[in-house]
Write a protein that binds this DNA or RNA. Structure first.
Length: 466
RNA sequence: GCCUCAAUAGCUCAGACGGUUAGAGCGACGGACUGUUAAUCCGCAGGUCGUAGGUUCGAUUCCUACUUGAGGCGCCA
């Protein structure tokens, strides 16, 4: 007898009529008084279950099999046969079913075999992976992660493991979580009575990173094509369906590249990811199409074939104004687009992912490269219908004098980022990069609207239970 | 951080202008039937109506605070 995953069994990896073993959790049991029970088993390897036929000749048929409920853990062994019933290709004629764990009190077991709301499942995050919804989301999340690696590795990128702890508080992307080993009830004080961080672990104030970008830029200036892929932390008090305090981000950075190279890379990577998901997770996507949003598959297919729309910020403002639509938030050149503007632009006016380029410099970060017009920077945001911004990127300012001047204008002490400025003094090269929010991308792909249901254990304000 | 909404059975919800025994569907459990597959049919159990105060003869229902959750906005990925 050989152990197989459900996926292998359904994919004809095991010879028919051979003895096989499968290990997993019961999704459903149906009894027939003809003297047999149908036990559907899931092991997470794929969307579908394998049907195991248990007959009365099993020694534990009366004592255990007839008591199996959803999510009892079992090891089933038997002969793999062509299914006698419709609905599946193969099934297992069990010779032995070992129950390694029953479910206590199935009447109050949180993940009962019925439809649950995502809010309810979130409160049982340690058990929610046993639902079709969450297991499909997690398989797609895995595919997306590996497709990103695959695309970048195939194109010669190096994965750089940038630090999660940082000492620079001016990365420019929101509030930071403080990292300290000081006794908060009784911290050491300096002569002015302030907390003396010289005595802290790193000898200075330190934080969890809000972006690996500044660090990865340094490795870009030696490895040419690099990316970060890891968790990122924002202490913003954001309460929305698309914000997490801890989320995963991919940040490619390319040397000798401009904004157009950056946009081309972003588009190529997204298309590869979409195509891979359509190929590898068609059953999961079919589930989303049936229960979440019927458009998810056709939307992705169109995305793979069509190019994204590219439009400058200035033209986007013109189109929004010309649309005659009235908005809650002010709309004029120089203001940052509000969610309603971004959504109307990419959902109504364009109807597909939209790359907005060349934003006014005053609403963007200090490191973005100034355009010759003196008013805009070489930035881009990629907006996805239904989700909003999934990518933010830019060509970086590689000119030392311009960068320092910009930092001074924005009140950032150049001395605090001297190592970052050194890149512009020692062999500076034009370069560009972007950040992709992994949860937002998977949210867009699956149609599952809240990023709290895209990450295994969401961290949000006032919530870190599991 | 701001605004809005919600909290009644294991889950999703209905309900009572404040008045004896609070309902349904799903799930669980028991039974019937069946190579079944979100099975079907019948039956049974299951509730201090989020917490604490207040108004009232009487509050699960009205009021206040709190807690928790959700949605929108802002911040952004």
């Amino acid at each position: 007898m050989t152990v197989y995953s459900v996926k292998q069994l359904l994919a004809s990896v095991a010879p028919v009529e051979s003895e096989v073993t499968v290990k997993g959790w019961v999704r459903n049991r149906r009894d027939s008084k003809a003297g047999l029970s149908f036990v559907s088993i899931s092991d997470g390897s794929c969307f579908d279950t394998i049907q195991v036929i248990a007959e009365t000749n099993l020694t534990n048929y009366e004592s255990e099999i007839l008591s199996l409920t959803k999510d009892c853990a079992v090891i089933a062994t038997g002969k793999l046969v062509a299914s006698l019933g419709g609905g599946q290709k193969y099934e297992i004629q069990a010779s032995k079913i070992e129950v390694t764990g029953f479910v206590e009190s199935p009447d109050t077991y949180p993940v009962s075999p019925k439809r649950h709301t995502v809010e309810y499942l979130r409160e049982h995050a340690h058990l929610r992976i046993r639902t079709n919804l969450m297991s499909s989301v997690m398989r797609v999340r895995n595919t997306v992660s590996m497709a990103i690696h695959d695309y970048l590795q195939t194109n010669g990128f190096n994965w750089v493991h940038t630090p999660l702890i940082t000492a620079s508080d001016c990365e420019g992307a929101g509030e930071l979580f403080k990292v300290t080993t000081l006794d908060l009830a009784n911290p050491p004080r300096d002569e002015k009575g302030k907390v003396d961080f010289k005595q802290d672990f790193f000898g200075r104030e330190s934080y969890l990173t809000v972006s690996g970008q500044l660090n990865v830029e340094t490795y870009c200036m030696g490895l040419s094509k690099v990316y970060t892929f890891g968790p990122t932390f924002r202490a913003e008090n954001s309460n929305t369906t698309r914000h997490l305090a801890e989320f995963w981000m991919v940040e490619p950075e390319i040397a000798f590249a401009n904004l157009m190279d950056d946009a081309t890379l972003a588009q190529g990577m997204l298309k590869h990811v979409f195509k891979t998901v359509l190929n590898k997770n068609s059953d999961d996507m079919g589930f989303f199409a049936q229960f979440i949003d019927k458009n998810v598959v056709t939307r992705l297919e169109r995305m793979v074939n069509d190019d994204f729309e590219m439009i400058t910020y200035t033209d986007a403002m013109k189109r929004l104004e010309a649309s005659g639509k009235s908005f809650e938030n002010p709309l004029y050149w120089g203001v940052d687009m509000a969610s309603e503007h971004e959504r109307f632009l990419c959902e109504e006016l364009v109807g597909k992912p939209t790359i907005v380029t060349n934003y006014p410099k005053d609403i963007k970060a200090f490191y973005m490269r100034q355009n010759d017009d003196g008013k805009t920077v070489a930035a881009m945001d990629i907006l996805a219908p239904g989700v909003g911004e999934i990518i933010g990127g830019s060509q970086r300012e590689e000119r030392y004098d311009v960068l320092v001047a910009r930092m001074m204008e924005m009140g950032i002490e150049p001395e605090s980022l001297s190592w970052y400025l050194d890149l512009r003094r020692y062999g500076s090269a034009p370069h560009a990069g972007f950040g992709l929010g992994l949860e937002r991308a998977v949210s867009y792909i699956t149609g599952v609207q809240n990023v709290r249901d895209i990450i295994p254990f969401p961290r949000t304000p006032k919530s870190a239970t599991f």
